[in-house]
C-alpha cells in the first residue's frame, strides 16, 4: 500500500491547481482546485469544449494533467507507479455518452470487462472469466435493471441505447468502485430513459456510498439528482454550490449569456 492518510475526514477527491493544456493552445483547464467528499453527487456543467471531459479524465489519469495535483482517497495520482495507478483506476468506474462498449462482444463479457484489473494472465489470454466474475456480472446486470437473460448472450450492438447504458453501468458495478465518473451519460438517450438512468446512478451511489462526478448539459436533471453543482467557464470554476442556489443569473454567467441572449456569431 502507498501512503494512506489515517484521518477519516480526508476528501474522496482533491484537486489542487489542476491545469491541462493540449498542445500550445489555450488550456482546457486552468488551475482548478476543489474537494469532493465521500458520497457527494457532483454535476459539472458549462459550455461545450470548456474542459468538462478533460476534468473527468484527469481524475482517473486517463489524461495526465500538465500541472497541479489530483488526490484520490488520499493517494496522489501523479506520484503512483504505473501498477499502483491501475489499481486506483480500477476503483473508479466510468460511463460515457456513447456507452463505449465493445460492440462485437456479448453483454455478459462486456460487463465482465469491468473486472479485467484482477483477471489473471492466462484467463485474460483465453478470454475465460471465473465463476465469481460471472456471478458478479449477473448480479450487476440485475441491479442495473437488465434481468432478461436473453440479452446476456447477445452482441451488445443489438441492444437499445438505454440497455447499452445499463450494460455500461453494470460494467462499472463489477468494479466495486468508490467513485463513478460519468461523461454526459444521458445525452444520447430519450427524455424518459434519461430519468431512469439518472435515478439508477443516484440510487446506486446513495446505497453504496459512491462518490459521483458527472458532466451534464440538462440542468433540470442536475438540480433534481445532484447534491452539488459545479460550473466551469474558461477552464476555471465559475460556480460551486448546492442545486437550489443555481439561479438563472449563475447559469448566464457560466454560459456568458448577456440579456438572456446567447452570445453567438452573427448569422
Amino acid at each position: 500500500m502507498v501512503t494512506q492518510d489515517p484521518a477519516n475526514s480526508r476528501p474522496m477527491i482533491g484537486l489542487k491547481g489542476l491545469t491541462k493544456a493540449y498542445g500550445g493552445g489555450k488550456p482546457a483547464l486552468a488551475g482548478v482546485s476543489l474537494q469532493i467528499e465521500k458520497g457527494e453527487f457532483a454535476v459539472v456543467f458549462g459550455p461545450s469544449g470548456v474542459g468538462k471531459s478533460t476534468l473527468l479524465r484527469c481524475l482517473n489519469y486517463l489524461v495526465t494533467p500538465t500541472s497541479g495535483e489530483v488526490v484520490i482517497d488520499g493517494q496522489r495520482m501523479g506520484a503512483l507507479s504505473a501498477r499502483e495507478l491501475l489499481k486506483v483506476r480500477s476503483n473508479i468506474g466510468m460511463i460515457f455518452q456513447e456507452f463505449n462498449l465493445i460492440n462485437r462482444m456479448s453483454t455478459l463479457v462486456n460487463v465482465m470487462c469491468g473486472r479485467l484489473h484482477g483477471l489473471g494472465f492466462l484467463r485474460a489470454l483465453t478470454y475465460s472469466f471465473s465463476r465469481e466474475d460471472h456471478e458478479a456480472a449477473i448480479t450487476a446486470l440485475n441491479r442495473a435493471g437488465l434481468d432478461d437473460e436473453d440479452l446476456y448472450h447477445r452482441r451488445v450492438d443489438t441492444l437499445s441505447g438505454g440497455q447499452k447504458q445499463r450494460v455500461a453501468i453494470a460494467r462499472v458495478l463489477v468494479q466495486e468502485p468508490r467513485i463513478i465518473l460519468a461523461d454526459e451519460p444521458v445525452a444520447s438517450l430519450d427524455v424518459k430513459i434519461q430519468h431512469t438512468i439518472m435515478q439508477l446512478v443516484a440510487d446506486i451511489a446513495a446505497k453504496d456510498g459512491i462518490t459521483v462526478v458527472m458532466s451534464l448539459h440538462q440542468l433540470d436533471l442536475a438540480k433534481q439528482y445532484a447534491t452539488r453543482i459545479i460550473g466551469l467557464s474558461d477552464g476555471k470554476i465559475a460556480f460551486d454550490g448546492p442545486p437550489d442556489s443555481l439561479s438563472d443569473e449563475v447559469v448566464n454567467k457560466v454560459f456568458k449569456i448577456v440579456d438572456n441572449k446567447a452570445v453567438t456569431a452573427d448569422a
Binding site: 460515457f96 463505449n100 465493445i102 473486472r115 479485467l116 460494467r171
Partner: peptide, 24 residues
Amino acid sequence: RSVEAIRATGAGRLKVIWFGIIPS
C-alpha cells in the same frame, strides 16, 4: 472510445489490446 472504456477499468496495456482492440 471503447478502448478508453477498457483503460478506465484499470486494465493494463496487454489487456486493453486483447479486450479493447482485437475483438473490434
